[in-house]
Amino acid sequence: MPSGLVNQYFRTQNLAHIWCPGCGNGIVTRALVKAIDALGLDKDDVCVVSGIGCSSRAPGYLDFNTLHTTHGRALAFATGVKLANPKLNVIVVTGDGDSSAIGGNHLIHAARRNIDITTIVFNNNTYGMTGGQYSPTTPTGDKGTTAPYGNIDAAFDLCNLAQAAGASYVARGTIYAANQLEKNIIDGIKNKGFSFIEAMTTCPTYYGRKNKKGNAVDMVTYLKEHAINKIAWEKLPEEKKVGKFVIGELYSSTRPEYTEQYDRLIDSFKKGV
């Protein structure tokens, strides 16, 4: 990243970060900062909220209004912040366990309300902070420290989940295709409603080592070789989709946004309707 952006958007006094060598979280954070820069948002009007986990440490490094909350509850806190002050651009940074296990209820309800919050899930398929336990996005059969014989759970497709719950913008990206991820984050922030972006990232330290996925480069190469863009994906015969996953903007729609609806209610009393 150009050093100008680091100086402009990072709390450089709080660096170095806590992430392991080879961790992909920095690439997702970079994409977020580049998206905010591209949109020209005023730093005072940006609020980044997170829960607990490796990815949730990102806000501490960023020079915005930042809120590092309790495990799973980032979206519930963010809902309060956004409703209380709708002029803020509220962005939630969360992990796969934080957003879809302990915080799964808040995810589906924030999507249902279509509240104007952009949620970026750093999906590394594991609980990194606690040392590599299986998460709701650990593929079936893969190992974690709490799945020593292989995970028998089925994994969530987080994008399908968010779309089904009512998100008005849904996209998936990878840390390999970082420019496309950045574009999706830009579109997500621009969307007036609940935006959900799943960023596929890597945890070579725990998930990678436990599942013999190679080093950090091998894991990024895996993302490169298995991620298929939406346009190509739709032309692909079903048998060729096996083992691959789709990236890009997956869904977009327009429907009433929650805080605008509430402000309309307040206005109706002002007008004496």
Binding site: V49, L67, T69, T70, R73, A76, F77, A78, T79, G80, V81, K82, L83, A84, N85, L88, N105, H106, I108, H109
Partner: peptide
């Protein structure tokens, strides 16, 4: 706002306060 559960109710209350 009626939240999805008690935990969220407490979280959003704190969020509202942090927003002033």
């Amino acid at each position: 706002i009626q939240m999805e559960d008690e935990i969220a109710g407490m979280a959003a209350t704190l969020g509202g306060s942090l927003a002033g």
